[in-house]
Design a protein around this nucleic acid. Structure first.
Lengths: 385, 385
DNA sequence: CTGAAAGCGCTAACAG
DNA sequence: CTGTTAGCGCTTTCAG
């Protein structure tokens, strides 16, 4: 009887059939009607513990122990198992492992954007702490949209991660509920002006704005413009702005002019906005930018115009981005401690997930970092001020 | 008999015991010796399908169907189930779902770095395509280290993702073996100068270098310096360099001077290197930078020095970063098509994983995008050139 | 030190 | 349209 390449099998036949396929390119199969069939092997069936077990003649359980370095296994067995696993190219199935062990070595990291270098830097900090630990970060991006945050968090929680690191303290009710009920450590990062669900690590943006206002006033500037992002959902930028006006108000001063932008190349926008503002309010003697990129754009524009910085106009930004180092003049700024925030947040998750094993209990941690002003060459009016 | 807070249970008791805990803060338990115990409920047991099933009086299977929108379910039952799931705050367990269904909606994305904005942009492209599909990207970072690439890939494959998107064509033997044997679609991105394991999407960096050489020569420049990254493992930068020298060689010209850097702020390094090179080789009339950031730094330095660009010295970079738009002068560059690469790569994975369901077979796709030179204001010597 | 048994929470396949 | 059954590949638990 000639071999055919394809046939339909009943379900229970198929189950048995798959057993036959292990490790063979194809298999001859005598089906119920007595027909002899040649069937192509399924393209790829990933190896299982059982395959390794059969290859080295050791029970699945022992293989598992060797591969996880758990429990005592004789050196001889260990060698045998490792050799077999390597020879076969076995890659353990974490899905099955996590289901069985009820522990998942993933940490959900939820951030608003990747385009703003701030967040890749936080991730770098998280990576640094989590490298050389079993924990692994998984990133979700929300585009600053609360609905998307909800959705992203939901999807991440459905993987039952060991912890959540999430940017900001402002969330929808649903998001907050999920965080509260997830039963895993949650660290809210970047911002500490508010009440976290659990732990938090960040800086006070309100205080940052206030401190910058104080520094500016101390240098004798008084006719101040603010340039920032329009995004109503960037709560941290908003809080900096609020803290800033608050700081000025305490000294009886008000912002003279303000300008907001949305999208586009930040550097180019900084130029445009600065031009617009100075044409509208030529009397200004200081410009405070809500981030370094637009600040740098503004600075470049002013230099093009031959404006004396900080003699005629002083400048400051926010974030302490590396880029500033290469600019013709060092822009005053404030470091947002991004990498450190990432490291500390990851450390909290790490400590807590270790504590779960030892049944220790942990209190929520609230860490507020204090960013320092870097005066650069655009804020100090009088010598070493 | 007084209630105690803690006790030791035999294993089989515990199993039964857990049933009692469902939905209750604590439970009275009559153990084998007749003792009545009050036991605190475990901190948190995530809800299961069974909980929802019990809450709404519908079989687990039907609940599952409703939650996945699979198969026909009567509107009435659907409503009931959805209401119960929502009320309880049920979040499905993907770990279990993936194990049972043998399909994991994750796409592994392996890239060398997050600090270089190129990669976040590729990710944005991938996200854009994968949004509104069940597939979800998971990112791993290799720091340009082959060993780390191996390790990261191994960990990602252990989650049995639906596909892999990985930067570059150069990998260790082990990495290549894993990619070949994973049995899932693999797309190697960014570069097309070489042989992929499966599919690839990118640009030819060799050709990019060559084209830039041709453009420079056509503008009449002839004493050319190259400034680039020292990283021997950035194969794409290397290939651009090779293509560049090749292009010059064809015209009988050789690079006059070269300078390489490592780490630090790219903008600042661009300044330094440019200064170093021009002091060493003052005759140069063109500088080709291996990326836009160092190019921008060089440009800023030259402008500080009052050098006429491109009259005295022409400049070009590579990548087409958004930043350039805000610079005092538009740097010539070449777009690396980053977002498009991300989109196309994700699309390939998407098509293939759909094809797996319909049993269609797919050929590897090799997509080479053609980056265009943007002349800016630093490359054209003679009017519109 | 090693093995056998019993699930983890869900879904595919089939039977009503 | 809905329910039942039998695993997915691994680890936990307990018994040698």
């Amino acid at each position: 009887m000639p071999a055919r390449r394809f046939t339909v099998l009943l379900a229970h036949e198929l189950a048995w059939f798959r057993q036959c396929l292990i490790g063979r390119p194809f298999v001859g199969y005598q089906c119920a009607t007595g027909q002899e069939l040649a069937v192509t092997r399924p393209k790829h069936r990933p190896l299982t513990l059982r395959d390794v077990s059969e290859a080295c003649g050791v029970s699945e359980m022992t293989v598992s122990r060797v591969l996880r370095n758990r429990g005592d296994v004789s050196a001889a067995t260990r060698e045998k198992v490792l050799a077999a696993a390597k020879a076969l190219g076995y890659v353990p199935n974490q899905i099955a492992g996590s289901l069985a062990s009820q522990r998942v070595n993933l940490v959900a990291v939820v951030i608003p954007s990747l385009s703003n270098m701030v967040f890749p830097e936080v991730l770098t900090g998280i990576n640094r702490t989590l490298d050389d630990t079993p924990l692994q970060p998984v990133v979700g991006v929300t585009d600053y949209l609360p609905e998307k945050e909800e959705q992203v968090l939901y999807e991440m929680l459905s993987w039952r991660p060991s912890g959540v690191i999430i940017a900001g303290l402002e969330h929808s009710d649903a998001t907050r509920a999920m965080l509260t009920n997830a039963g895993i450590p949650v660290v809210e990062i970047m911002d500490t002006d508010g009440t976290p669900v659990d732990s938090m690590v960040g800086i006070s943006h309100r205080r940052a704005g206030r401190k910058m206002a104080e520094a500016i006033l101390k240098q004798g500037f008084s006719r101040i413009g603010f340039l920032g992002t329009k995004m109503p959902l960037d709560h941290r930028a908003r809080k900096r702005f609020e803290g800033f006006t608050e700081g000025l108000t305490k000294a009886g001063i008000e912002i003279e002019d303000r300008e907001f932008y949305n999208g586009g190349s930040a550097l180019a926008k900084g130029r445009e906005m600065t031009q617009t503002m100075l044409e509208r309010s030529p009397d200004l003697d200081f410009l405070y930018y809500s981030n370094d990129m637009i600040g740098a754009g503004g600075m470049l524009w002013l230099m093009d115009q031959g404006v004396d910085i900080p003699g005629e106009v002083g400048l400051a930004g926010f974030n302490g981005v590396e880029l500033l180092e290469g600019l013709p003049r060092q822009l005053a700024t404030m470091d947002a401690c991004r990498a450190e925030i990432g490291e500390k947040a990851a450390q909290i998750i790490l400590d807590r997930s270790a504590a779960l094993d030892t049944e220790d209990s942990f209190e929520p941690e609230h860490i507020t970092l204090a960013p320092k002003i870097s005066y650069g060459q655009t804020l100090r009016r009088h010598g070493q001020g």
